[in-house]
Amino acid sequence: MTEIIDQHQEGKRDVTFRVFRFNPQVDSKPYFDDYTISAERGITVLRSLNYIKEHVDATLSFRAFCQAGICGSCGMRVNGISKLACTSQVWDELDKCREPGIIRVEPLRSLPMIKDLIVDMDPLVDKMTRYSNWIDSTMPLADMGKKEFLISEEEFQRYDKATDCILCASCVSECSILRANKEYVSPAVLLKSYRMNVDSRDGIHDLRLAELVKDHGVWDCTHCYRCQESCVKSIPIMEAIHAIREDALESRGPRDTSGAKHAEAFMEDIEKKGKLVEATLPIRTNGVVWTLRNLLPMAMKMIVKRRTPPPPPLVKSAKGIKVFRAMFREMTEHVKQDHLKSHKK
């Protein structure tokens, strides 16, 4: 057999990359540039960008390092979703384009823009520092390096998946809270905090948790699950967030933070009436003083516009409340049992 066989060499497809451009030195606002190249099967978005930089436009700027999905440098939005450019196949992306044949490439959101697809990662590092995202070892200094902690497989399993995080910031970019509040701790830092808090070698669990339950902390998450859906390493980030909350309720009690009290009030209403008693919700969450100080003007406006929620006595129980209550109690009982079991472990 002398002829050259290459079963991988199949057709090529023309692809247009519509890339976000912004150079703070010359541009007053961002714009998009179109680059059309011919891409064969198996080519990644990053390789395409590299090709464009080398052959079409050397000014196109983006970060890339390992090119193998482990360093996390090339996080960007491809067709609107935050992901790694190096592990995204061009041909797969072609099936997801809003306009046929045009792949949109944009920088990550919620981090300051630097140039083109490059954003500033410093805010994320600052948050890692603020929330003590490290192990403060309980091993006495004199024994360091001399003996091992004995760690069970069970404990290892608790943080194994969380340590897959490569800080690519895809979750940061997708997080719906961060888009509204840049101070918010962020999913990546919550995940890392969780990972530290369940590690028996660590000695500052309480300190870290105290920081996490403050403003802009763990209670601000709205469970949109965008972080988990976009995680390039398929880490169940929401499980970590729930675990921190449960930990906070358990070890600090429900009454010491507005977030915890808010959750408690929800539970109370749902159990009693099957729906929310909105009029008193702010008082139960943040207290009378806070509510008067912060919500009185809004309450007045609502009265004027006749948009006030009904007072508590007028909130009737939802239809079928008895059946619902039975189900509700059964569920809470289940959750309690599960907790007991997991703690016995």
Partner: peptide, 14 residues
């Protein structure tokens, strides 16, 4: 050095 890394948080398999 491996133990020191273990002491400061490296999640070694067990």
């Amino acid at each position: 050095i491996i133990r020191e890394l273990e002491n400061i948080g490296t999640p070694w398999s067990r």
